[in-house]
Design a binder for these strands. Structure first.
Length: 772
DNA sequence: CAGTGAGCGAGCTTCCGCTTGACTT
């Protein structure tokens, strides 16, 4: 058998397609991304010796590399065809190291599109590994390791074990914290929106118009409406102008994530896993890209499809430049593999995502939509200002034909200068200015991309990390109801209404936790450069200079470390109290020890006494409805009185009162009774006895049957159920609970599925397996 | 959507970027 040539690419799906183009003389294999890296445990950078990195074979890539090694030995020639960017070049270099190839002679090829011509062209024009570009990647890698692995341990010691900080994630968190504070500090201003409905005299076609000046307050609005009450209205001018709307460029990773969230409600992680499936099944091109370029084949196929399906006038050939200057353009835009396939995907979610990609790609090669805009100015006889009415008619749909969100025309009746108008109704509605918007997963990705922070392959993981570390929570926010006033003028009569509107409602938004604020305040104080929004963009310039050969990577890293590391040393000496934003409330009257509030391992906590003393301090949770800023000494002193001995039951058992995870309760032995209406600090023995008695009665009713061995039939709020203490099985209505035997109860329990653990535990377990 | 009412002590955690599966839930 003749020897084959070996081509190594990064992605197995890519290997498959290229294999088809190249034929049987070539074996095409994949490295599955990076194969060597700094070991997870420890810094593995020799700071004393020019920051020399110690790489190891990725533990989960041993098999892959062994396979590649075997093929490389048997091959005539090895072609390194990893992506043409910094990371791809590094992969090629690491492949040389791992496979025992000489980097200065091994053939290195690149191609931007997966087509026969592109690949043939690449094979005819090989080069060797660009070591300067590899060095730029090494500098990037080493800097990230230094920052991440020197900052995180400070957080473990000062705040909580297991925390993390890094060049990308800490800025992502900062964006959310800064935004949340802007929202908190935002003072909503009220203003009045003034609108009117007119009709052409004696005709009945009504149309809306808006007053062209803003009105600040109720008095102004009322004053204005009173002043114009007996006015006449007339069309002063009608201006028609043509306008057009152009289609957006084809998808990159970031814009796909945004649009999938906006149109389909998918989270970024979900979008990526659906897209991955579409990619693996050959339906779409590569999904982690920052490029909006389309391949020539795609351009031609789209041209043919659009012309044939919609007609010549719908086609408009375009090649989009990538806006982002830091884009590395190793891939194409995300596009369908076959333009004439309208339906791809193995489930509904995939199908909808595919459709979105197909529409966006197709739209990008279609004509702009043409509209005619009409602006009508309406004069007021008793006032110098005007009302404006706007209409828009779609003259030609163009790309809107496929993008599926054709806006309804806003039609105006035929109007001409001088037309007299009847006022049907005038309305001034009190409104509020809005604070800046909270980030969603998708808009945070857009912001990161805008700041050149992170890469297409890391957007989704970064969003996951900041959530699993407890920095950010994805939340729905309930709005607040506000009273508003509406002033109405109708048939010459002025009236006022009071009603309410809800403002500030938010769905699935990223909200920083108190932990995030604590960490962010510490980092911005001691490491302002690292969490600066421009930090990544600035060091990217240095990486570019390394790639150009203008500087050597150890020089750049040394310069960075010289100013970075002293900050690490300095911040390590900062007192824990400062980092956790401790605030002394005053002295405890009983023990004369100071009481403070600070951010503890599990969140805000009250502390009595100091860690410097021989006697260890006491801890207590914060009372409900207080926070670190608002809690008072008086409230804190009460908390340290817990658990409080309330008295004894008739039988002489001790009754205590305390606050637990689910609020205040009293306890007798192992029986807990929630307190709802009474204050646990003042509840009397008699009241407590009564509560306990009620609970006992309730419990006695609860047990329908006791089979022993912990197996019982209990009466729950949702009907009778069987329990063994671990699992609960509801009893169907057809069965009489009293007639069940121990044996049937047992089998029912065995058949039932295991009880779901608490959500919190599940999230934690997930995060663990993800990060391993 | 029931019921529930922690925390002991040793050694571990962590970064960003490139790729997919092999695992649970």
């Amino acid at each position: 058998m003749p020897k084959k040539d070996l081509v190594i690419v990064e992605s197995p799906a890519k290997a498959k397609t290229i294999g088809k183009f190249l034929g049987s003389e070539y074996e095409v294999k994949s490295s599955f991304g990076h194969i060597r890296d700094l070991p997870k445990k420890g810094l593995n950078i020799d700071i004393e010796h020019d920051f020399e990195p110690h790489y190891e074979l990725n533990p989960d890539k041993k098999k892959v590399v062994a396979g590649l090694k075997k093929s490389a030995k048997a091959a005539n020639t090895v072609w390194l065809a990893s992506d043409e960017d910094r990371e791809g070049e590094a992969i090629a270099w690491h492949l040389c190291k791992a496979l025992g190839l000489n980097p200065s002679t091994t053939k290195r090829i690149v191609f931007h599109e997966i087509t026969k011509t592109a690949i043939d062209h690449a094979i005819e024009n090989p080069r060797t590994v660009d070591i300067k570009l590899v060095d730029a990647q090494q500098a990037r890698r080493i800097l990230d390791r230094l920052v991440g692995y020197e900052l995180s341990p400070i957080l473990w010691r000062k705040v909580r074990s297991g925390l993390s900080a890094g060049r990308v994630q800490s800025v992502a968190v900062r964006l959310c914290v800064d935004r949340e504070r802007e929202i908190k500090d935002f003072k909503a201003k009220t203003f009045y929106k003034l609108t009117a409905n007119f009709s052409v005299a004696k005709k009945h076609q009504e149309f809306p118009a808006e007053f062209n000046k803003s009105i600040d307050n109720h008095d102004q609005a009322k004053h204005f409406i009173e002043a114009v009450k007996n006015s006449t209205y007339q069309v002063e001018s009608v201006i028609k102008k043509p306008g057009f709307r152009s289609p957006p460029p084809p998808f990159t990773t970031s814009t796909l994530q945004q649009e999938a969230f906006r149109r389909l409600g998918y989270g970024v992680r979900q979008t990526m896993s659906l897209a991955q499936k579409l990619y693996e099944n050959g339906h779409i091109s590569y999904i982690r890209t920052d490029s909006t370029l389309m391949s020539l084949d795609h351009l031609n196929e789209s041209a043919e499809y659009i012309t044939k399906t919609y007609g010549e006038k719908y086609h408009h050939r375009r090649q989009y430049r990538t806006k982002n200057t830091s884009a590395q353009e190793a891939h194409e835009a995300i596009q369908p593999s076959k333009v004439n396939k309208l339906d791809c995907g193995s489930n509904n979610q995939e199908k909808r995502l595919y459709q979105l990609i197909w529409q966006r790609t197709m739209a990008s090669q279609m004509s702009p939509a043409k509209v005619e805009k009409t602006e009508v100015a309406i004069s007021i006889s008793r006032h110098p200002e005007k009302f404006m009415a706007k209409g828009e008619i779609l003259k030609f749909d163009g790309f809107l034909k496929v993008s599926g969100n054709i806006k309804d025309d806003t039609l105006l009746p035929p109007l001409a200068t001088g037309n007299k108008l009847d006022l049907k109704q005038m309305k001034a509605i009190e409104s509020f200015t809005r604070p800046p918007a909270r980030y969603s997963e998708a808009t945070l990705v857009r912001k990161l991309e805008e700041l050149s922070i992170g890469r297409p392959s890391t957007y989704a993981p970064t969003i996951s990390t900041i959530q699993s570390r407890g920095y950010i929570e994805k939340k729905d926010i309930a709005g607040i109801e506000r009273p508003i006033k509406i002033i109405v003028l109708e048939k010459g009569k002025l009236s006022e209404q009071a009603t309410t509107i809800v403002t500030g409602t938010d769905r699935s938004k990223l909200v920083p936790t108190l932990l995030a604020e604590i960490i962010n305040d510490f980092l911005t104080k001691y490491f302002s450069d690292i969490v600066d929004y421009d930090f990544t963009a600035d060091i990217e310039k240095d990486f570019d200079r390394i790639a150009d050969g203008a500087i050597k990577w150890p020089i750049m890293i040394k310069k960075f470390y010289k100013q970075f590391h002293p900050l690490v040393t300095k911040s390590a000496k900062v007192k824990r109290e400062e980092v956790t934003q401790a605030r002394t409330l005053g002295l405890d009257p009983k023990t004369k020890l100071p009481i403070m509030v600070r951010f503890g391992r599990f969140g805000p906590v009250l502390q009595r006494g100091s860690t410097d003393n021989e006697k260890k301090p006491d801890f207590a949770p914060l009372p409900k409805d207080t926070d670190m800023e608002s809690v008072t000494l008086k409230q804190a002193v009460e908390m340290f009185k817990l658990p409080r001995v309330v008295g004894k039951t008739e039988k002489g058992e001790e009754i205590t009162a305390n606050i637990g995870r689910f609020g205040p309760y009293i306890q007798v032995g192992k029986t807990f009774v929630s307190i709802k209406d009474l204050d646990l600090h003042v509840i009397t023995e008699a009241e407590a006895r009564e509560l306990y008695q009620e609970k006992l009665e309730q419990l006695s009713k609860k047990i329908i049957k006791d089979f022993g061995n912990g197996i019982k039939i209990l009466n729950g709020p949702y009907g009778p159920y069987i329990t063994d203490g671990k699992k609960n099985v509801p009893i169907p209505k057809t069965d009489q609970p009293v007639t069940l035997t121990a044996q049937t109860a047992k089998t029912m329990l065995e058949k039932a599925p295991a009880r779901k653990p608490f959500r919190r535990h599940r999230a934690r377990a997930k995060a663990k397996s993800r990060n391993k």
